[in-house]
Nucleic acid binder design. Structure first.
Lengths: 195, 195
DNA sequence: TTGCAACCACTACAGCCAGAGTACTACAAC
DNA sequence: GTTGTAGTACTCTGGCTGTAGTGGTTGCAA
């Protein structure tokens, strides 16, 4: 088992690329080699088998999807009102299209997890932690909306993401901003205090 | 190209089964043969290639997912209020778990559509029509909630479906009913007229 | 009822292709 | 000089595909 960290990371990154481009069907050691621009057989030296490869992809993909703290700070430099929440959601939505590869690979992983219990356990753990972090962040930042509002927004944004990634024609791009505005408005509910 | 309709339908049904169980990666002619309990080589006689197989799956899967009109009528035998909308959503949610295979296959198809323009076009067409039907049904039935409410609910239910199917541990099953109630309540907004 | 024709199920085969793994060489770093 | 990794090339394996060939069934007509 070879252990050059940069190369290993490059291979995992290539695997994410392949996963998004060709799907689980196309994810083979040879395809990873090709995508990473390394000679055939290299991936065999870095991953003991397909499960191992997927596990390492799972570990790395979150870093690829994770938001840049600077960017978050930039978006958050505004009063804690509904408009800011809507901004955040639009920003998340934009990230999906700008990082299409990462999110598509994530979807492929989710489906793959359907038939790989260990992968499912690990993905569940990380997604659960991310969601809890998001809820905590929302509540602690003084943004309007309770826990239920965050959960509902999360679900709707997940649905929107799935639509955009796979069948962008069903919910037209022109409608998304309006839908996000309505989503925030309605899930947060009647204005109590501003904070 | 052999054309025994029952057998063809059985093969397509078997393909849906395989798609849900083994994913796009496992969907081969031989796997379809095996799942349908027919001798190897049969699928080759019924589908000219993989694209053809996927196209026929697309055509048939909607019938498999489509709700039973009698069941709809049964659920709809109630006053047109929010409670009924929530009932409908819970019913849809239950159908996802009871027809897991169909919905999982649908997800696989969506991802496959990502790299097959014709499949994407066809899936988009059908999903769009279904969504429009749902909106029309909702509004014409006199159920509370405007078009935006239906769209938001659709997105959130889609997100919930994805979570349940792939990572059921992220949004616990105990929470779903409560979330659905809140979803309906908040997306529909303040009660104007009851109808 | 018998004979014929068309169609289809089924078996079996053979080719093919891609992926996997590995031995071997070359090179670079320490 | 030793160790570890990059790169090359080779073989093996397995699965998938497509099809030829055979047998059986159905339907029709004489």
């Amino acid at each position: 088992m070879v252990r050059n960290p940069e190369r290993r990371a490059a291979l995992v990154d290539a695997a994410i690329e392949v996963l998004a481009r060709d799907g689980a069907r196309g994810l083979t050691f040879r395809a990873v080699d090709a995508a990473a621009g390394v000679p055939g057989g290299t991936a065999s030296n870095y991953f003991s088998n397909r499960d191992d490869l997927l596990a390492q992809v799972t570990g790395q993909i979150h870093q690829r999807i994770a938001p840049d703290p600077d960017e978050v700070a930039e978006v958050m430099a505004a009063p804690r009102d509904r408009a800011l929440v809507a901004d955040l959601m639009r920003w998340i939505n934009r990230r999906v299209t700008e990082n299409r590869t990462g999110y598509l690979a994530m979807l492929e992983l989710r489906l793959e997890a359907t038939r790989r219990p260990e992968l499912q356990a690990e993905l569940t753990r990380v997604m659960r932690a991310t969601l809890d972090d998001d809820i905590g962040f929302h509540l602690e930042s003084g943004l309007p909306g309770d826990r239920t509002a965050v959960l509902l927004t999360y679900l709707a944004m997940t649905g929107l993401m799935l639509e955009q990634l796979t069948l962008p024609g069903v919910v037209p791009a022109e409608e998304t901003d309006g839908l996000i505005a309505a989503l925030v408005d309605r899930t947060i509910g009647p204005a109590g205090e501003p904070g």
